[in-house]
Structures are given as structure tokens and as C-alpha cells.
């Protein structure tokens, strides 16, 4: 009959109305500035740069390859490549960004920069209380503001960070092993090169001093 649905609906809202005074657990909202919800792991808004170690600028993972700058749809990343190189986490000398700016007033939080970065250097942040009174300078984040330690990233996205960290550690181990193997191979080569050395017969019959393998 016409009206039964209406009455059912009205009863439901009446129940909510009375119930919200009876049981505060019904209230779904969080009183924001005083209470906060823990952020979800996959939440994201603006990118930041990850660094390892203690020194924010020395430890930056970014190698200024500028892929993210090219891929960013609204073109809000601005990078200047350095002239010199610095060692990365493996120890390989790499370029680093002399300037790295992101204009978060333009950024649309698409995460494309994160997806394309081959070095896991740029990741999405979760900070959202970014209101300022200046909409130009204050929203243009520089390298210094963007750099955040790996521990921070581990806190934000634990699963992803753990995966990256193990991969990096493996790569480092591999690199070390390779370095060691290289060193050994070099040493052997050196030894072999050194071995046929005592060809000219010693005049005084003394044993020649072995050449110490060069340490790398």
C-alpha cells in the first residue's frame, strides 16, 4: 500500500535520531582536530624523496635521471642535474639532483612519478595538513623539504618499504660479492702476471720478494 515504505523509512531515521543520543558508538564521525584516524597504508597525496642514512642530501636515492620530470602529466616537477657525481647505496658514482622542486599546488597526486622511477627514489606521502597563507612559494617544495628518511617511508608503507629494502640489501650483497670476486680475480690475474716474473735468473741466487697484490 502507498505509504508503508514511507513509514518504514521514517521509523529508521527516528531510530537513528534517538539511538545517536543513546549509544555514542553509533556516531560514525571522528572529531577531527582532537581525534584522528590512523592513515590507511595505501593513502597518498604528494610525492617526497627518500634518502638513506643520516645525511639527507648525501643519501638521496634520486639520480636525477629526470624520467619523472618527463612523465609527470601536469609538469610540476623541476630537476637540475648535478655536474659532479656522488656514490649511491652500492657505491657506484651517480649524478644527483642539484635542484628538485615539486609544485604541489599543481600536482594531482597521480603517483605516475612513483611508478616510473627506476630507483625507488620518489614515493607518495600522506601529510595533508598543508594549508598556508601563501599559495606560491609555500606550495613549491624544494629538495630540502622533499627529502625524508627511509625510516619515514617504512612507517608509511611498511609492505612496500620492506620489499624495497630486501631488494636493495640483496643488490648490495651481490655487488659486494661481485666486488670481492672481481678483487679476487684481479688478484689472481695479478698473481698470474706476477708468477712468470722471476724469469730473469737471479744473479745473486736470492729468492725474489713476492709482489703484494694491490688492495682495492
Amino acid at each position: 500500500m502507498l505509504g508503508t515504505g514511507l513509514i518504514k523509512g521514517m521509523a529508521q531515521t527516528a531510530k537513528n535520531f534517538v539511538g545517536s543520543y543513546q549509544g555514542p558508538e553509533r556516531l560514525v564521525t571522528v572529531q577531527y582536530p582532537e581525534e584522528r584516524l590512523a592513515p590507511k597504508e595505501n593513502a597518498r597525496n604528494f610525492p617526497f624523496l627518500v634518502f638513506d642514512g643520516d645525511d639527507a642530501q648525501k643519501g638521496l636515492r634520486c639520480v636525477a635521471c629526470q624520467i619523472c620530470e618527463k612523465e609527470c602529466p601536469p609538469k610540476c616537477i623541476y630537476i637540475n642535474k648535478s655536474k659532479d657525481k656522488k656514490p649511491d647505496y652500492i657505491g657506484k658514482p651517480q649524478f644527483y639532483p642539484a635542484t628538485f622542486d615539486i609544485d604541489i599546488s599543481v600536482c594531482m597526486s597521480c603517483q605516475i612519478c612513483v611508478e616510473v622511477c627506476p630507483f625507488d627514489a620518489i614515493k607518495m606521502d600522506k601529510v595533508f595538513e598543508l594549508s598556508t597563507t601563501d599559495r606560491f612559494e609555500a606550495l613549491l617544495l624544494h629538495k630540502t623539504e622533499l627529502a625524508k628518511p627511509n625510516e619515514y617511508f617504512q612507517e608509511l608503507h611498511p609492505t612496500e618499504a620492506a620489499e624495497i629494502d630486501t631488494r636493495f640489501a640483496e643488490e648490495k650483497l651481490k655487488a659486494e660479492a661481485k666486488a670481492k670476486a672481481d678483487a679476487e680475480a684481479k688478484a689472481k690475474a695479478a698473481a698470474i702476471a706476477a708468477a712468470p716474473k722471476p724469469e730473469p735468473a737471479p744473479v745473486d741466487g736470492s729468492i725474489p720478494t713476492p709482489v703484494a697484490p694491490k688492495t682495492i
Binding site: T13, N16, F17, G19, S20, Y21, R26, L27, V28, T29, Q31
Partner: peptide, 10 residues
């Protein structure tokens, strides 16, 4: 206020 309560808000 009442609309809020009806929707289980404050």
C-alpha cells in the same frame, strides 16, 4: 543538528 543525528553524526 537533527539531520546530523538522523545520519548518526553530531
Amino acid at each position: 543538528k537533527i539531520l546530523g543525528r538522523i545520519q548518526n553524526r553530531l
